[in-house]
């Protein structure tokens, strides 16, 4: 008898807990639907690159701040592949509830489509934008012994210039190709897999010049191991105040890497506002400002509309320039 009763109690307890569990699940679903109490759980930030790169480090810096601001955990998950397209497609397919967001690179939308096959192209319109983050600039450098100090010096050299870049479909490749074409300098593009190998090749004088990110080369510049010939930003940057832009030297080349915060299309407005506010508060912290300076990043913490305008502008401009000068980033295809 006692045994039987116990069993009944047990069954009741089990069914009650099952009900409770499903009940809880129900409550959670409505709350993640974008009501006022967002966020109730972890927000995952995915990165379309391996750990250690600029995009990864920026994501981690923002994740820490946003997590503190919203009082939830913000785990960072690396999903490298296809210059970030793989991660972008996954984010695009994710539920638009604000629990999956990502920092994305402008080059994926403005430059990479000029170099890769159609199925790898990702469109900006497939995402909700949360705001701009920062600008990462490129610098054209030469070994210190080469005697080159400006782009004009390269022209005077009167030979075929071999230039290293950070890879096919990157801003480094675009900026160099445009510069050499406009200057009428015969040049050969030697792509490397990122900034470090390109810098190594330059230091060993395997290539004549190289275009890489400022953050990757600033110490070499300070140590006078390499000479900066030009930066490719619109205006001079504060990390290299004495280095003239390509524009100042007479070439219409403005190429930078922009990064911005994105969410899947259809994310509720109040969720977007909360995320954008948390990001803004993060940008205002000293720790984050220090991070930007350490990596030579210039803040571009602008509104989503502004981001769209900048990106659309560059996408059109690059496409037109490539056609105008007859340059193909996907050479010898």
């Amino acid at each position: 008898m006692l045994f039987k009763l116990n069993r009944q109690v047990l069954v009741m307890a089990v069914s009650a807990s099952v009900l409770l569990a499903t009940g809880c699940g129900g409550v959670k679903t409505t709350s993640t639907g974008g009501e006022g109490d967002y966020p109730t759980g972890n927000i995952q930030m995915s990165v379309g690159a391996s750990p250690g790169g600029s995009t990864d480090l920026i994501t981690r810096a923002i994740a820490e701040g946003v997590g503190k601001e919203l009082g939830v955990s913000v785990p960072v998950v690396n999903k490298p592949g296809a210059n970030g397209a793989l991660n972008a497609k996954e984010l695009q397919a994710a539920k638009p509830d604000g629990y999956k967001i990502a920092v994305q690179n402008a080059s994926l939308f403005t430059i990479t489509p000029l170099a890769v096959s159609a199925n790898e192209v990702v469109k900006l319109d497939d995402f909700d934008l949360l705001g701009g983050i920062s600008q990462d600039d490129y610098v054209l450098i030469a070994p210190v012994g080469s005697g080159y100090k400006t782009i004009a010096d390269l022209k005077k050299a009167g030979k075929n210039i071999k230039y290293g870049t950070t890879g096919v479909g990157t801003g480094a490749q675009l900026a160099s190709a445009l510069t050499f074409k406009q200057a009428g300098i015969p040049a050969t593009d030697v792509p490397f897999d990122g900034g470090a190998p390109a810098l190594t090749a330059l230091l060993g004088s395997q290539v004549d010049v190289a275009t890489i990110q400022v953050g990757d080369s600033i110490e070499q510049i300070k140590a006078k191991k390499v000479v900066p010939l030009a930066v490719f930003s619109g205006e001079r940057i504060k990390f290299l105040p004495d280095v003239p832009t390509a524009k100042e030297q007479g070439y219409d080349v403005v190429v930078s890497q922009y990064r911005f915060l994105t969410a899947p299309k259809g994310t509720p407005d109040n969720v977007k506002t909360k995320l954008a506010d948390a990001a803004k508060k993060t940008y205002a912290t000293d720790a984050y400002k220090k991070f930007n300076d350490a990596h030579c990043l210039t803040p571009i913490e602008v509104s989503p509309d502004e981001v769209r305008k900048i990106l659309d502008g560059y996408a059109t401009k690059y496409k037109g320039q490539l056609e105008q000068f007859g340059i193909s980033l996907a050479a010898k295809k």
Binding site: A85, L86, V116, S117, E120, V168, P191, L329, K332, K333
Partner: peptide
């Protein structure tokens, strides 16, 4: 992806 031309090789259109 061919790291020199950006062409896809044996990827069967899979990212």
């Amino acid at each position: 992806r061919d790291t020199f031309t950006g062409a896809s090789r044996f990827t069967f259109d899979s990212l």
